[in-house]
């Protein structure tokens, strides 16, 4: 099927009424360039607080590039123009303290990347750097974050053993726990389950449902079932453009655009 046939400028982007709902993050005309290569065009999306928003699309659609721009992980790799509004600040501005910002907008990556340290140190390392030194307080943070990531029961008896010895699924949940331990506002997840087996994937999805009570989650996934299972809102990305953004239910049942419809029904490329 020819994917070049869709009109990339024919889009349907849902707008929230800011009076009615609280937005955690809003992007405005975000564009990303890798050198001369224009990788992402015009992303203006609003992300509601305490909801899960899924970014779906084929590989190369720009969804990961977009996500990584939300907490400046593209610094030094790509040039990003436009605005990312967070707490009334444009965090895409050079005046922003990116380190401080990233403490509030955490990220979990596609491949599990625990430090080659113990489970305990993986979680406490950044927390300690952030000024928490009290042993009891740290123990409490380790326990709550591991519990939120549904890993506590599996590792509570060997917190001092190396994180690298855990299974892939456990490592990924440890990375989620590590991000949660910083108590961020927003959690960005870049295909967190793509490298995992179905059981681990299910566990991560359960974890996310639990987490959304306290966190705003934006997740990139190429797994449509996953998007429809966990997310409240879904944005469909295609060739560097956001084609459609709506409630997840609408995207999967009554998509407005042909490209979206073809993609969610599996008639795509």
């Amino acid at each position: 099927m020819d994917v070049g046939k869709y009109d990339l400028n024919d889009t349907a982007i849902m707008q929230f009424d800011p009076q009615e709902r609280e937005m955690a993050l809003t992007t405005n005309d975000l564009q990303v360039y890798y050198g001369d290569n224009h990788a992402f065009y015009d992303g203006s999306l609003q992300f509601e607080r305490y909801k899960i928003t899924a970014l779906i699309g084929a590989s190369g659609s720009g969804k990961s590039t977009f996500l990584r721009s939300l907490n400046r992980m593209n610094d030094g790799i790509a040039r990003v123009s436009g605005n990312v509004w967070y707490r009334g600040l444009d965090i895409n501005s050079s005046k922003i303290n990116v380190y401080e910002m990233r403490k509030h907008i955490g990220m979990v990556f596609q491949r599990p990347n625990p430090f080659s340290k113990s489970i305990w140190e993986n979680i406490t390392f950044a927390v300690k750097e952030n000024g928490v030194k009290d042993k009891h307080k740290l123990a409490e943070i380790v326990e709550t974050s591991l519990k939120s990531a549904a890993l506590w029961d599996e590792v509570k008896d060997h917190l001092n053993s190396s994180a690298v010895a855990l299974s892939g699924g456990q490592q990924q949940r440890l990375c989620i726990a590590r991000a949660i331990a910083m108590q961020p506002d927003i959690l960005l997840m870049d295909e967190p389950a793509s490298a995992l087996d179905p059981i681990s994937t299910l566990k991560i999805e359960e974890t996310m449902m639990e987490l959304k009570k306290h966190y705003t989650i934006i997740i990139v996934t190429h797994n449509m079932q996953q998007a429809s299972r966990v997310s409240d809102y879904t944005a469909f990305f295609h060739l560097g453009h956001v084609i459609e953004y709506d409630k997840t239910k609408n995207i999967f049942t009554f998509p407005q655009k042909k490209a979206t419809e073809d993609y969610v029904s599996g008639n795509f490329g």
Binding site: M73, Y99, K103, N113, E129, C175
Partner: peptide, 22 residues
């Protein structure tokens, strides 16, 4: 691996700290 650098940066650590400690 660069994944280790990203892990440190995404937690709000400075690049220098990530290099020294990770």
């Amino acid at each position: 691996s660069d994944l280790q650098r990203e892990a440190g940066l995404a937690l709000g650590l400075s690049k220098w700290k990530t290099v020294i400690k990770v």
